[in-house]
Design a protein around this nucleic acid. Structure first.
Lengths: 187, 187
DNA sequence: GCGCGTTTGTGACGATCGTCACAGGATAGA
DNA sequence: TCTATCCTGTGACGATCGTCACAAACGCGC
């Protein structure tokens, strides 16, 4: 919870009163490694603020995992298409380590936002972050080769390389595990 | 303006009163083909709702245009990273046809949203749309080969193939113009 | 320290895709 | 109608990357 408060204050002014309005929508949850926060096929009814550990979003492509995204401390994990449009999720979200999150329940959050505009603002700013992250990530694939994508990650998000295994990273970068191993080798 | 009203009503209930609050932030603008809505290096101070025509967002990679996105009628064009975080834009936005847009001025919009929560809600919903579009587009590159990406576009956004030239489409799909020509050829 | 499962490295080979070069079509303006 | 320009198709070739197979390294529990 403390981490969340810090995060919120970094985004927008937020009084105790605002916090009291928000609180009913929140719950702290714990997941063991490999447990699911969201399963493909379900409709996503929550945002998950990561306070400890990390998780991944991944597609199942013909029985093979393809990682869409990783969410570390202070990231917000969700499926926007599912959360926003009430569609079935096309990917799953799963803990990669013992995980602690603050869950934002969608219905309760909407009620809180209707009662307190500052919460609506917070929601908008979170979405801005999420959209910005996506915008950057998509650019990787348009502008860079496999090797360049890896090198970009190396300098822009070095912590990710420390925490995520090569096999998991490869599909996130859209390349084969073997290719990533070779890219890393020649340096 | 009419198109914008229809669009807004499709997102959220919006009274005349809300509209009056929003109006000062809006202006209708016209661009000739090839004119710029935003240039790389500038900070993005507006959202652009496309009412007629279409435009593109593109990166300059070593002097070559790489299309990041296309925005058609009822789309909202902007650079989220620049608009949200006040960073210099890494891409430009340019009219591909004679273009009519409704410009949302950032400062005036923030003021309007502070005065009227329903405008804040509208902003959140627009961002949700933008993020959802990005989420889907990124998935293309992780899950599909060049040919599959083209075929996906063919069935999911057939209008795009009608309006955008093959050369422009190719960089959007992350493939060479020649390759796209061949993909289209074998069918 | 030993064994077992998981992760990473490597070799061989083929498929896909990008690059360069050029030719044929389409389009618009004089 | 003629020409200049832009867009699209196509051939040849090489680079990159994926796939399959297997070996080496690592981590973890006993």
């Amino acid at each position: 919870m403390k981490e969340l408060q810090t995060y919120i204050h970094s985004l927008t002014p937020f009084s105790d009163d605002n916090w009291q309005h928000l609180l009913p929508a929140l719950s702290v949850q714990h997941f063991r490694k490999d447990e699911f926060l969201l399963r493909a096929g379900e409709v996503c009814n929550a945002l998950f603020f990561v306070s400890k550990g990390y998780c991944r979003a991944f597609y199942d492509k013909d029985g093979v995992d393809i990682n869409a995204d990783f969410f570390f401390e202070q990231d917000i994990a969700t499926n926007i298409n599912s959360y926003g449009r009430r569609e079935k999720s096309t990917f799953s979200i799963q803990a990669c380590e013992p995980l602690e999150v603050v869950r934002f329940d969608r219905d309760l959050l909407l009620a809180a936002a209707a009662a307190d505009p500052q919460i609506e603002t917070l929601g908008r700013l979170c979405l801005q972050r999420i959209a910005a992250k996506q915008e950057k990530h998509t650019a990787l694939f348009k502008l860079m080769s496999a090797q360049e994508r890896y090198e970009y990650l190396e300098q822009a998000y070095p912590e990710m390389l420390q925490r995520v295994s090569l096999s998991q990273l490869s599909s996130f970068l859209g390349i084969a595990r073997e290719t990533l191993s070779r890219i890393r080798g020649r340096r």
